[in-house]
């Protein structure tokens, strides 16, 4: 267990999500990332390094070290 934890710690990468720095495991798709954040990928839109990622590709595009994500949804507004 400790061995696995150590291995995972070595396999994390640094990203920004909505302006906040976080470390996530390497090898995640963007859909995985949103699920890890507790979000449903079909209720959000994702921008990666200022480019919108089409929803159909969220499961294909891999999270890379240094990525800057904006994850948005609809809220009340006038």
């Amino acid at each position: 267990m400790t061995q696995r934890k150590a291995a995972l710690a070595n396999d994390t990468i640094s990203v920004r999500v909505n302006g906040e720095h976080r470390r996530v495991y390497e090898g995640l798709s963007i859909a995985d990332l949103t699920r890890d954040l507790g979000l449903s990928p079909d209720k959000v839109a994702v921008e990666r390094n200022l480019e919108v990622v089409p929803r159909a590709k969220l499961a294909e595009v891999m999270v890379e070290d240094g990525d800057d994500f904006e994850i948005v949804t609809f809220v009340g507004g006038g």
């Binding site: 999500v17 909505n18 302006g19 906040e20 954040l37 507790g38 979000l39 209720k43 959000v44 839109a45 904006e70 994850i71 948005v72 949804t73 609809f74 809220v75 009340g76 507004g77 006038g78």
Partner: peptide, 17 residues
């Protein structure tokens, strides 16, 4: 509706949708 950052610290908060 407005477009805003999701609340990453409270992902289970109720949503407009």
């Amino acid at each position: 509706v407005a477009v805003r950052r999701v609340n990453v610290s409270d992902p289970n908060a109720p949503m407009l949708t």
